[in-house]
């Protein structure tokens, strides 16, 4: 029975697939049921905001339920990333700890907005201004918090550039380091949405929404792929 560091490879693979399935389920709920793609304009009047939640109220709430179930998808992914980082660190794996903790806490900003969206949809007959408050709360919480994500990315970048193992078997090839660095640099557009209600800097605009979202999608797909490839190589070497 293998008791070495590679004993958990099967579980790690399962975690990556959980993260993929969770992200897809969340995307389905958010796009198909909550109909938030493309996002509602940030300058929408309160009565139209309220209509977003009352028009297909039950469908919307089912979407929220699925989003709440799937919303933790970043956690298993962060754990596998951390385990893979720890393999490559010397001594106490502090970069892996930083990445895992920030990934886990940061994932709250994916499912917490879903709770606020649930509140907005919960009492469709209330005054529109009250619904609009939770609508804004949810959207700003979803788009703008950048408190943890850059720190999560830092460790991945560091490992990609300092590791000793070859790129073609690594979970963190150098190109992923650069892709992650790009993600880090571009993520600063998000908080700008606090200042703008219209145009490319608003929460439905090019900078806080479209560019980071497409980049996050590419980054997420890329790291899932490199993790699965690295796990395959580690199992073969075992």
């Amino acid at each position: 029975m293998n008791q070495g560091p590679n004993a958990s490879i099967g579980t790690q693979r399962l975690f990556v697939w959980l993260a993929i399935a969770g992200a897809l389920l969340f995307a389905f709920a958010w796009i198909a049921l909550m109909r938030f793609f493309p996002p509602p304009p940030a300058d929408l009047p309160a009565d139209q905001v309220a209509a977003l939640y009352s028009a297909h109220n039950v469908r919307f709430r089912i979407g929220v339920i699925l989003a709440l179930i799937a919303g933790g998808f970043l956690v298993p992914l962060s754990i596998v990333i951390s385990v893979q980082m720890a393999r490559l660190e010397r001594g106490i794996p502090i970069w892996a700890i930083l990445q895992g903790l920030t990934g886990a806490i940061g994932s709250a900003f994916i499912w917490l907005p879903a709770v606020a969206w649930a509140v907005a949809a919960f009492t469709p007959e209330r005054a529109p201004e009250l619904t609009a408050i939770f609508h804004e709360f949810a959207w700003l919480m979803f788009i703008t918090p950048l408190s943890l994500f850059p720190m999560q990315l830092l460790g991945i970048i560091y490992i990609a550039f300092t590791k000793e193992e070859p790129d073609n078997v690594s979970a963190f090839p150098r190109w992923l380091g650069y892709l992650t660095a790009w993600q880090l640099v571009q993520s600063f557009g998000g908080p700008m949405a606090v200042l703008f209600k219209t145009g490319i800097f608003s929460w439905n605009g090019l900078l806080p929404f479209w560019l980071p979202l497409s980049l996050f999608g590419a980054w997420y797909a890329a790291i899932c792929w490199t993790l699965l490839r690295a796990l395959r190589c580690q199992r073969a070497a075992d």
């Binding site: 150098r174 190109w175 992923l176 380091g177 650069y178 892709l179 660095a181 790009w182 640099v185 571009q186 490319i200 090019l206 900078l207 560019l211 980049l215």
Partner: peptide
Amino acid sequence: GEAGVWLLIFGEMSFFTALFAS
């Protein structure tokens, strides 16, 4: 540099080009 950094640089420049066009 290396191939990876050009991924970042061309990506950034295309993002900024979109912003300039806007």
